[in-house]
Amino acid sequence: MLEHFSHIVTVFLLVAGLFIVIARGNLIKKLVGLSILQTSVYLLYIAPGKLLGGTAPILAPQLSVYSNPLPHVLILTAIVVGVATLALGLALAVRIREAYDTIEEDEILALDHAADAREGS
């Protein structure tokens, strides 16, 4: 059980994040959920890269066991991507607040439907 600890945390974050994205109507909360979802990915990559007792990958005679550095590099990229997504999402939320005067999804949908109905007639 304990040996899968990191995986359990990963799955928990994944499901929790996804749940928040789907179930919450507030645009900011959705973004929070999305960030949590992405965090689970960071863990998924990094945790298995670590070896107990392993060190940083430095070529030196006294060090023979070291952790895989590649996942760290990958996740650094993924974090950047995540930050960019979050920033853009927040920026959109601000613009939506300005345009619709709300950041609740159901209210936005109601306004959109009203606009669609006006055009259709």
Binding site: L18, V21, L27, K30, L34, L37, Q38, V41, T85, L88, G89, L92, A93, R95, I96, A99, Y100, I108, D112, A115
Partner: peptide, 19 residues
């Protein structure tokens, strides 16, 4: 303004897909 809402929805769905 519906473009904003559409972009936001696409951002959420797209990010889930990418994740």
């Amino acid at each position: 303004r519906r473009a904003l809402a559409a972009a936001y929805r696409y951002l959420i769905m797209g990010s889930i897909g990418a994740t």
